[in-house]
């Protein structure tokens, strides 16, 4: 087991595990957000639970933050190493003949996602942490009702923010269109289920980002 992160395959394996973990997180995030479309009350209840339950706040949240940081730092490490492996580039290279645009540009779609995560943190995470741990208000209340749904709708008033979110979700879809299926190959799963997994990955990679876009547009257009 020693020094597995020092080998190419070990690094790829760790990259894939962190990515698969993020895929589960993303699904969970989506399920909670879509509640906001159907039932503001349910969305409020779940948000309050997620925001105050100790195991989520002090156990899962740090794991998630570590997972995200690990994933993009490892993404940079791999990118640097891979660039070193070919110092003189081709005068003419026809990459489109043998591979998808998504697969060749994971670092760029990844960087777009990273920019989005920064924006998303400033929008939602930092105000949350500020209210809960700096101001010390753990009630989740504002003017006699839960504040979560209200804050969400407020944020999606701005067409600029909605636009930025939509662009980010398009990049997320591009990242996942190659990445999700790639992660299975990285952990060595290439077998009779591969065809099914490919289809499942495609549905997820397009469906989840599209769902997030729908949620943002829904609140923007309806105003509630």
């Amino acid at each position: 087991m020693s020094g597995i992160l020092n080998s190419s395959i070990g690094r790829k394996f760790a990259m894939a595990l962190s990515a698969l973990f993020l895929m589960i997180f993303l699904l969970q995030h989506f399920v909670i957000n879509i509640l906001s479309v159907f039932s503001p009350d349910a969305f409020n209840e779940v948000s309050h639970f997620m925001g105050t339950f100790w195991a989520i706040q002090y156990l899962l949240q740090p794991i998630l933050i570590f997972g995200v940081i690990f994933h993009f730092v490892m993404g940079f490490v791999l990118e640097i190493k891979n660039n070193k492996a070919r110092q003189i580039s081709y005068a003419k290279n026809n990459g489109g003949a043998n591979s998808s645009w998504m697969s060749r540009n994971m670092i760029w779609s990844g960087l777009a996602i990273l920019a989005f995560i920064v924006l998303h943190f400033i929008d939602f995470w930092i105000p949350e942490i500020n209210t809960k741990y700096i101001i010390g208000d753990m009630t989740g209340m504002h003017n006699g009702e839960y504040r979560y749904f209200h804050e969400l709708v407020e944020k999606f008033h701005s067409p600029l923010r909605v636009g930025a979110y939509i662009i980010a979700f398009v990049f997320l879809a591009l990242h996942l269109l190659h990445g999700f299926n790639s992660a299975f190959q990285s952990v060595g799963a290439n077998n009779k289920y591969t065809k099914g997994l490919k289809t499942f990955s495609k549905v997820y990679a397009i469906g989840i980002p599209l769902g997030f876009i729908f949620i943002a547009l829904f609140h923007h257009l309806t105003g509630h």
């Binding site: 190419s8 790829k12 070193k84 492996a85 990459g95 003949a97 043998n98 060749r104 190659h178 990285s186």
Partner: peptide, 20 residues
């Protein structure tokens, strides 16, 4: 794999270009 890494080959991104 150790020798492959020492020779300075890159990591696999599963683009599939090799197979094609």
């Amino acid at each position: 794999v150790k020798q492959m890494d020492e020779e300075g080959f890159g990591n696999c991104t599963n683009t599939g270009a090799c197979e094609v």
